[in-house]
Simulated assay, not measured.
Amino acid sequence: MFLNSTVILFYSNMLFGVILSLSSNNWVMLWVGLEISMMSFIPLMTSNLMISSESAMKYFIIQSMSSSIFILGVVFMLMGVNINYEMIIVLSMCMKMGVAPFHSWVLSMIEGMNYMMMFNMFTVMKIVPMMVMINMNLNLNLIIMLTLIIGSVFGLNQNSIRSLLAYSSIFNMGFMIYSMKNFSLWIMYFLLYSINLFMLIKILNLNNINYLNQLIINKVELKSKLSVWILMLSSGGMPPMMGFMGKLIVIELSLNFNDWVITVIMVITSLLTMFYYNRLCFTIMSISSLITKWKINNSSWLSINIMIINLSTMPFIILLKYLN
């Protein structure tokens, strides 16, 4: 997508909608902000892909439906009806974000989007629904367990990079929803996930990689392979990468709350995601296994930066934790 005045207008409108929702002090303005960001996001989704218009229509229908359910919950709350309106609002937000069991729409529309719009959908568009869920303060353990299991198990047999990232996003949503119990940890996890996803999407976009076998068949240079390898390990949560830090702090939080079932599911599902990311890494790197991997002087600035960010973030966060 070329950066022109239209794109800048829609991007700024989308961010304005998010900021309006975050800074509003009543439910109606929060809903207005959600609608502004949604209506600005849909034109940005359209691209030269054949199914982009279909994806945009699916996105519009799902978001409209979830907004209607949200308004219904708000009306029940304002009327003082003896109904669990908090659960209605939370379920509408889950549908808006694509959390399991409302995740099917994400996978059906993801193939019609470009990588940068995927990044926006997985990060920026989830901030407001998360804030609403934090304010509701409900026990969402069942949704968290479902999200973790579906995000890890269904990602095992994917061949498309977009589907892999979508299932990875669903899996990470489980960690994000659990980390809501501590707001500062939620911000930390969200930032770590966003930075890692942005770097991975940037590399995939630069090399125009859409399917796993392209990394093997294409003549992708070793620098890019090394970068993808490090980012995949980080996304899977391999220590001492940046992605491991996020998972570690959330699992530590679950241990503090004595949620043993959630902790066990988090560890097992993390191993499954680690497996499908590692499978990809080994496939990429073993094709050029005779080449020395650590020739830093031959690497590009991008791969060096990715390596530095991934390897230095975790010690830096641990240092900050102990300084506090």
Rank of each mutant, 00 (worst) to 15 (best):
M121D: 02
F171K: 05
M131T: 11
C281D: 05
V99L: 02
M188G: 10
I291A: 13
G80R: 03
Y115E: 07
K58R: 08
I284W: 04
I287G: 03
Y277D: 10
V220T: 03
S68D: 08
I149E: 12
E54G: 10
S300W: 14
S299H: 14
G237P: 06
F2W: 14
G151C: 05
S163E: 04
V75D: 12
Y59H: 05
K58V: 02
S92D: 02
K223Q: 13
P315M: 04
I209V: 14
W294M: 06
V267G: 11
S92Q: 00
N205L: 09
I203C: 01
P240E: 06
S108I: 04
I251Y: 09
V106K: 02
L185Q: 08
L22M: 13
T313A: 05
Q63G: 08
V132Y: 00
V7L: 11
L9P: 09
G243Q: 02
G237D: 07
S40K: 07
S169Y: 05
F316M: 15
K219L: 07
V81R: 15
M136E: 01
I201D: 04
L231S: 09
L222V: 11
M266V: 08
L142H: 14
G73R: 02
G33C: 12
P101Q: 01
V250Y: 01
S64Q: 13
M113C: 13
S168W: 03
S66P: 00
S179T: 05
S227A: 03
G98N: 01
Y322S: 15
S5W: 14
S224I: 03
N159I: 09
G112P: 00
G236A: 00
G174I: 01
N207A: 13
F171P: 06
A56R: 02
P129K: 04
L146N: 07
N256D: 12
M188R: 12
K181I: 07
Y322P: 11
V132P: 00
M266K: 11
Y189C: 03
L49F: 12
V28I: 11
I89L: 01
K293L: 14
M95W: 04
N207I: 11
M238G: 02
L191N: 15
T263Q: 08
V267C: 10
G237A: 10
S312G: 07
S23L: 12
M113P: 10
P240C: 08
G33L: 09
M314I: 07
G112E: 01
I268E: 05
N297K: 09
S92F: 00
T263A: 07
L204A: 02
L206Y: 14
F190L: 05
N139E: 08
G112H: 00
S152N: 11
F76R: 00
L3Y: 10
L311A: 14
I304R: 10
I177L: 10
L290G: 15
S288Q: 15
F41A: 01
M117F: 12
I89K: 00
V90G: 06
S286D: 10
E86Q: 15
F316V: 08
I201L: 06
V99K: 00
G80I: 04
L49K: 07
M113N: 14
L146M: 11
S21W: 01
L9R: 12
L311T: 13
